[in-house]
Write a protein that binds this DNA or RNA. Structure first.
Lengths: 120, 120
DNA sequence: CTAGTCACTTGCGAAATGCAAGTTACTAGA
DNA sequence: TCTAGTAACTTGCATTTCGCAAGTGACTAG
């Protein structure tokens, strides 16, 4: 990314995370989801092309790494980088405010990892 | 807002704040800006129709109140509600992460209030 | 040889965005 | 009185992004 709207940290964060989907993908990653189909199966029903776009952008931004967890057939998983995990306090602050002002909302549970996954 | 994407607090927050401009308006309000022209003059150069739209949505969401600070000619100012001020920890977390990962960015200074403004 | 899964990609109509210009209402100065 | 200026928006319209549905290619299991 070359053009910057300003040198405000908030502005720059919004230029990568400021939409209705990116932070939800990161939420899923924080909760332990790793695979394309897992993200697709979240209740918000992200469209597959939007998901592919967001994962590519997150990888380009260094928040996520993509790696094959098996060959034949090739299957990939996505993991948060250290930079990506650094967003947890942001998500935490959002959850605190959200739970207070949107009654009935609840923090989602972490996802148990299946047997096929490689440990980090 | 009637349809909910999910009962996740993050999702619901993103449905009101999840775009490239809304949180910047809130940032300006937190910094002490109150008037339409002040928001327009921020370095990110928000378009006036987008600003009007966001202020209306923020008022509808109960994050902001609009009031006349003078008559003849009528002039208005916008102030954060308690609910709106509750977002400060979110902004704070974003600033911390943003400053770390976007070198050269700096927290913006608060705005001195002019003499015409009514004290909160 | 058929069906199924995974990880995407493509097409296209709908919605959001961004830029410029216009509007209304009032004040201050020549 | 006439002109210019400011504040707070609104309108028109071209560009961009989004979102739904369907399609693709590689592979496996039965």
């Amino acid at each position: 990314m070359s053009f910057k709207r300003s040198d405000c940290p908030i502005t720059n964060v919004l230029d990568t995370l400021g939409d209705k989907w990116t932070l939800l993908v990161i939420r899923d990653l924080v909760l332990g989801k790793r695979r394309y189909q897992e993200f697709l199966s979240s209740p918000e029903r992200i469209a597959s092309n939007i998901l592919a776009d967001r994962l590519a952008k997150l990888e380009a931004a260094g928040l996520v790494t993509r790696r094959a967890y098996q060959q034949n057939p090739a299957r990939h998983e996505y993991l948060l980088t250290k930079k990506g995990r650094g967003l947890e306090p942001v998500l935490e602050a959002i959850i605190v405010w959200g739970k207070k002002h949107y009654p009935g909302t609840k923090r989602f549970p972490t996802v148990r990892q299946g047997f096929g996954a490689i440990k980090p």
